[in-house]
Amino acid sequence: MGSAAVDSALLVSVENVSFSYGRGLVLEDVTLPIFRGDFLAVLGPNGSGKTTLIKTILGVLKPSRGSVKIMGQPVSAFKAWERIGYVPQKATHFDPLFPASVREVVAMGLLASRRPFHRTTRDEAEEIARILALVGLDKEARSPVGRLSGGQQQRVFIARALLLAPHLLVLDEPTTGVDAGMEEQFYDLLSALNIGRGITIVLVTHDIGIANRHITKVACLGRKLVYHGTHEEFCRSAALRDMIAGGHHLISHRH
């Protein structure tokens, strides 16, 4: 494979990134390439810098040192944010009284990216209906979002991210508070998006547990990048053993 082909396959490039909150260094000299089609799990204990890393990728935080490029552009100059879908850690922590239906929440990102006074077109309405069917929420389209279960709410946020046809979907601990049955369905959906639609997925998690069957690559953080490679290599690596010895249970049950 030539270098041009490698470059076009490179979706996100994190190069020597360090970040500190005041004097506390949270990320140190992290270099992490993310390639198109990856289903990357970013693992690590609390405070290891997982959320900080994805916030630097999303341009929400500016690295103290190093650089981030998305699709070859420095993140500060990147404009096509509709190509990046994001499901935040606290996505389901909104006010339950928020007066919005599932359909309205799914349309939020799309409408906010349009010009003032934009009204949903017929094509957009059809696309919203299609995405809702994809995540299995077509029957709940008119339900108030605050009345759904945690698992259903997470699927609403994924639908919102998918509506803009992203190339990259970033999820920060998306199954927190979701029961095991829902979690399994949720990862099946992510896998279908990754394999069926070619969407690159970056999943931040404490516990690869159920996601283990679907991920293709692993980045293991402990302020520095401790490990980056394929999932198979990771299962045999010293990094995994070190983290388990440190009291962090990364359950691996590959089926």
Binding site: G59, V60, W81, E82, Y86, K90, A100, A112, V170
Partner: peptide, 17 residues
């Protein structure tokens, strides 16, 4: 639309640019 998105989910609104 921008204000509603920001009010509902500040973090995602920021990440959406």
């Amino acid at each position: 639309h921008k204000l509603v998105f920001l009010t509902f989910d500040r973090e995602s609104a920021r990440a959406a640019g």
